[in-house]
Computed example of a mutant assay.
Amino acid sequence: MSCSENTNATPGDPLEALDDAVAAAAFRRLVRHLRHRHDAQNLDLMILSGFCRNCLADWIRDAGAPLDKDNAREVIHGMPAAEWKTRFHREATQDQLDRMAESLKKNAPAP
């Protein structure tokens, strides 16, 4: 899986004017929502939106969180990622894998 690469700030985007504390609160609410919705599989999230829990873990590291990959995923999952996978992960169908491949094409940076 590969996360969306199209995350550049756009000049004049009102998102950039959003207070960091407000943005952080919204991010925490999103993460808590995903912790509650274990039925929303990472693959389903990737198909529909081009990102998943693991992407969020990568993004907090990219933003400067002093965590390794496993610790960042634990922050997002609310438990070690291996435990989350054992408890909640379902194997992908071929249809899901095909749809994810199409979704990932949309994540590629524009030429």
Results as ranks from 00 to 15, higher is better:
residue 12 G to Y: 09
residue 18 L to Q: 05
residue 44 D to W: 13
residue 7 T to D: 07
residue 108 A to Y: 05
residue 105 K to S: 12
residue 70 D to G: 08
residue 37 R to C: 10
residue 35 R to D: 06
residue 12 G to D: 12
residue 75 V to K: 10
residue 62 D to A: 15
residue 80 P to A: 06
residue 29 R to N: 09
residue 81 A to G: 09
residue 31 V to F: 00
residue 109 P to S: 06
residue 62 D to P: 01
residue 66 P to K: 04
residue 33 H to L: 14
residue 51 F to D: 03
residue 52 C to Y: 00
residue 7 T to A: 04
residue 15 L to W: 06
residue 108 A to V: 15
residue 16 E to V: 12
residue 20 D to Q: 10
residue 13 D to L: 00
residue 38 H to D: 12
residue 91 E to C: 02
residue 57 A to P: 04
residue 15 L to E: 11
residue 103 S to Q: 05
residue 44 D to K: 11
residue 107 N to Y: 06
residue 1 M to T: 05
residue 48 L to R: 14
residue 50 G to H: 03
residue 17 A to H: 07
residue 76 I to S: 06
residue 21 A to C: 00
residue 42 N to E: 02
residue 87 R to D: 11
residue 42 N to R: 03
residue 50 G to E: 10
residue 50 G to L: 14
residue 42 N to W: 01
residue 80 P to D: 04
residue 58 D to Q: 15
residue 98 D to P: 01
residue 78 G to D: 04
residue 74 E to V: 03
residue 21 A to D: 06
residue 102 E to D: 13
residue 85 K to C: 05
residue 94 Q to P: 04
residue 68 D to C: 10
residue 100 M to I: 11
residue 31 V to S: 03
residue 27 F to L: 14
residue 73 R to K: 15
residue 56 L to P: 03
residue 67 L to I: 08
residue 60 I to C: 08
residue 24 A to I: 09
residue 26 A to I: 15
